[in-house]
Simulated scan of single mutants.
Amino acid sequence: MTYRIPSLNGLKAFEAAARHLSFKAAAAELGVTAGAVSQQVKRLEMSLGISLFRRLPQGLLLTREGAAYLPDVSRAFDVLTDATEMVAPALNGRKLSLGVDPLVADRLPNGWPRHSKELEPYVRETRVTDDVELIWSNELDALLLAAKTRHGSLSERAIRLNGIAAALYFVTRPGLAECRQSRAILDALES
């Protein structure tokens, strides 16, 4: 059987840009430039023969076709992730090491994340630090920071602690930005 699917890189660029409604934020997550994401999406649109976004001065807006396409593309990546984790269970079982900025640690519940049973499968250790170099040296997988700063190709996501506007930033390598472990940590913080 021949599958009629467009470039997976184009689909990844579209899915990330659609979630963030920003080529720049998608680029930070994927570890590429905003121009590369824009070009991948443009090639995807050309191969499909439709526009997926309206490009506005203040950001992106999904077209009707883009909004209809996004849920199935996201679901397809979830299916691929599940299939990969079934044949390579070590990927699913891997726990992240998490650094927490001292300024952030004061805002978290005492003992977080150890007190959270739902995070037990996802977090191996927590260390109080704000040293981004520990991600580059693979000593940490992710870092919660109190202030937004530029971290090169690392993914940086602003988060709201327990639904309250707070200047917290989740920093990790792009490949870990959307993994189950990262999503579980972010969900626990934002709920």
Rank of each mutant, 00 (worst) to 15 (best):
L48E: 07
L176M: 11
R180D: 14
K95P: 03
D131H: 14
T2M: 11
A158Q: 12
F77H: 05
V32K: 10
F53N: 05
H115R: 13
G93Q: 14
E125F: 01
Y3M: 10
N110Q: 14
G163D: 09
N162S: 13
S182F: 03
E118P: 07
D78M: 08
K148P: 00
M1Y: 10
A27W: 00
N162D: 14
G59F: 05
R55D: 02
E125P: 00
L60H: 06
W136M: 06
S137D: 15
Y3W: 07
L168Q: 08
G163N: 08
K148N: 11
R183Y: 05
I185V: 15
G93R: 15
E45T: 03
S22T: 05
D141P: 01
A188M: 09
E156T: 13
L30Y: 02
R180G: 14
A34V: 00
R150A: 12
H115W: 07
A184I: 07
Y3N: 07
L144I: 08
A88Y: 15
P71K: 05
A142K: 03
P174E: 04
L143G: 04
L52K: 04
G66N: 09
E133L: 04
R183C: 09
A83N: 07
R160H: 12
A184C: 09
G66P: 01
L161M: 09
G59K: 06
E139Y: 10
E15H: 01
E139S: 12
F14T: 03
Y3P: 00
N92A: 14
R43N: 14
N9M: 01
A147F: 08
V37R: 01
S22Y: 05
W112I: 06
R183P: 05
G10R: 01
G175E: 15
G99N: 09
R4A: 08
Y69Q: 05
F23Y: 15
G111H: 08
L134I: 02
A167H: 10
R157A: 07
A167P: 13
R94D: 06
R54H: 14
T149H: 11
A146G: 15
R180P: 10
M86Y: 11
E125T: 11
M86H: 13
P6I: 00
W112C: 06
K12V: 04
T172Y: 01
F23D: 05
R54Y: 12
